[in-house]
Design a protein around this nucleic acid. Sequence first.
DNA 1: AATGAATGAGACTTCATTCAT
DNA 2: CATGAATGAAGTCTCATTCAT
Lengths: 215, 215, 215, 215
Amino acid sequence: MSQGEKPAYQDRSRQTREKIVAALDDALREKSFDQVSVAEIAQRADIAVGTVYRRFENKDALIPVILEIYQKRLEAWVAGESGIEIEPDEDLRAVLRKIMRKSWAICAREAHLLRAVHLYSRLKPDLADSEDWKQYEQASAQSIAAVINHYASQVKRKNLKRTSAFAAYMFNSFFIEKGLYPEEAPATLFPYSGKTLADEFADMLYAYLRLPEEK
Amino acid sequence: MSQGEKPAYQDRSRQTREKIVAALDDALREKSFDQVSVAEIAQRADIAVGTVYRRFENKDALIPVILEIYQKRLEAWVAGESGIEIEPDEDLRAVLRKIMRKSWAICAREAHLLRAVHLYSRLKPDLADSEDWKQYEQASAQSIAAVINHYASQVKRKNLKRTSAFAAYMFNSFFIEKGLYPEEAPATLFPYSGKTLADEFADMLYAYLRLPEEK
Amino acid sequence: MSQGEKPAYQDRSRQTREKIVAALDDALREKSFDQVSVAEIAQRADIAVGTVYRRFENKDALIPVILEIYQKRLEAWVAGESGIEIEPDEDLRAVLRKIMRKSWAICAREAHLLRAVHLYSRLKPDLADSEDWKQYEQASAQSIAAVINHYASQVKRKNLKRTSAFAAYMFNSFFIEKGLYPEEAPATLFPYSGKTLADEFADMLYAYLRLPEEK
Amino acid sequence: MSQGEKPAYQDRSRQTREKIVAALDDALREKSFDQVSVAEIAQRADIAVGTVYRRFENKDALIPVILEIYQKRLEAWVAGESGIEIEPDEDLRAVLRKIMRKSWAICAREAHLLRAVHLYSRLKPDLADSEDWKQYEQASAQSIAAVINHYASQVKRKNLKRTSAFAAYMFNSFFIEKGLYPEEAPATLFPYSGKTLADEFADMLYAYLRLPEEK
DNA sequence: AATGAATGAGACTTCATTCAT
DNA sequence: CATGAATGAAGTCTCATTCAT
């Protein structure tokens, strides 16, 4: 239960919550969070406006929910499909490609959710300290760091901590523009997507890791 | 004079326009364009609401102005400081660092303006096809391409066109998150800025250019 | 429920609707529709502005309502009073007088409503094609035609269709000026009203019907 | 010089006035007076907004001017073309037809002006007592009366004064709807115009004059 | 006298939130 | 608990009128 959300003791409450969440998910595929009115959410959920306010303190309290949906999707998807399998003797470059392809697939799939959270954190940074969002990004940073540490022998950079942090930052930035706003600049500057795109980024990351810092 | 703007015949008109522009510039340091009402702009400019509408067809017509302010600032700044000087025998890696440091300085300085345009194009992609914005990003892409072509001998990638496009995309993405929203994730994942940040990206780009495509 | 109006599910809604309608009815006795603001309607109805918009898509959607009020009044009135009774052997001239007197009474009673619709259709002919209004006038045309056909034997004109059409046109024009704008010219040119007025017009119509077309 | 208008002592003033008048005339062919803004008039006249206010106290003060234009047109037209010539032994019915055809022609020609004044007197009856408008209609009434008196021998009605007044009223009503709003109901009920229309009305009037009052 | 920039009241409309049923 | 009607602040935009130049 995230901030601004009210407890649901009864079964019926939980059902209502599900409805709201589904409606929001739906609506975000079409418009930005700002453009979706509470009335529209209620209508899509086939409940009354007041009912939304019974579950959520205000409209902003729905934001954490979006991330929550995303995380559930992510988990379900990871659980369902085979994860990234790394062969014992696999090359770092190949592994990065695998990761990037996979990441791209996930990101593209649920872009509307990430877009909503992302935009929101830009529009109302004060409200949306949204710990969840930060946590989410930090989680991705840790994954990157784990890979880098695992292949430390192939990495030429010495300051692994800083390298990991930078890689994580680029990883996220990379996906944000191309993944969340594929129709807008700067995404349109590179007219490829899918594997081509993922591989290109994997290569860039690989190259970076292989380049020794300058003395 | 950009689209939706009305002509200014008199001196007084131009003064008013400047007041509006300054007020907008000011306001954008605090909130997003959507959160700034026309009434607020008028108030900050110390003029009447109607006066804003005398100069601009509607609120959206102010968007191109933002980019215009930015470009003026850019030009003034470039004119003031010494540009990027490239020594004849200078190394690609060093050149990239220079470029990135400079770009970072510019971007950080007027982040609020770029942020406004960027956010707007995400919120109202239909309206804000904002040719100016696209042009601006394409211009940066061309600069990148020029550098790459100039140093073609040091670049190991063969498909220069695709390489340039990807580099341009990463260049812009890199600056967007860290430059426009330095307080938000994912920018916070990499806790450095200034030269450290610029150099790190320069290195990444350099490494990428030096890495041959896989056969 | 007319075009642009929103459905009312609850009793309370219907009460609100009636408040709005009554407020509008009231206001139109004093000013033209254009001069009545939505805020004024809300105030007269003792509700919030937004409440008006909850029931009606926009201000224009109130226009059909005006005609609706008028029609209800008309029906109620007709139901209440005895209708026009025609004796079997009654003279055409006498029948026309009866009709005109009755029509005059109806028209004078609810002049403010008809005035609103009439003016609106003159001010915004494009929007207010207002099928209702047209239908209403055509209905009156059909009534006239029915009478003429019924008394065909007493009518000397041969082209009954054209005669009916002209009679209907004159019937409406007659009422519009004198009925809707009794204080203005040209109504003031004929300083009588009520039966005197109605009878005079009945006579004119009678005379017209009795005059053979010129060969 | 009508009410609300300011005196023009100089030549230049008079020229300005002409420009305004012409611009207004022009504009009224396209939209209603309410829909024409002072700014538009100024633009069409190729003068400044303030200049309009130097000549006219406010927008409403332009209304009397419209009627003035109309009257000038009328006079010029009457002076230019041969007026209505009545042969000594001409039949009343034929004379009425001539009058109606001529009247129709005038009315149709400058409908936009009459329409503006007419609408205005309906929208703001308080302000627009517009003596001019009343005078104008009374003038037409006198003309009708003159004809009726001239043919008194052929008229069967006894109360000539009342008869004339009613005829004048119908004369004006007749032209208002069909002449000023030919595209709207009730004008559309009678799908003819020109001579057919004029003759039909002439016949109606003739018949009326020939019908003795009932005892 | 002319100009046209500036004014600001006021109109329409939206929508997050409240509250009586 | 759910409902959905009602609220009203706030936003965008228009235009008759004023006034400094």
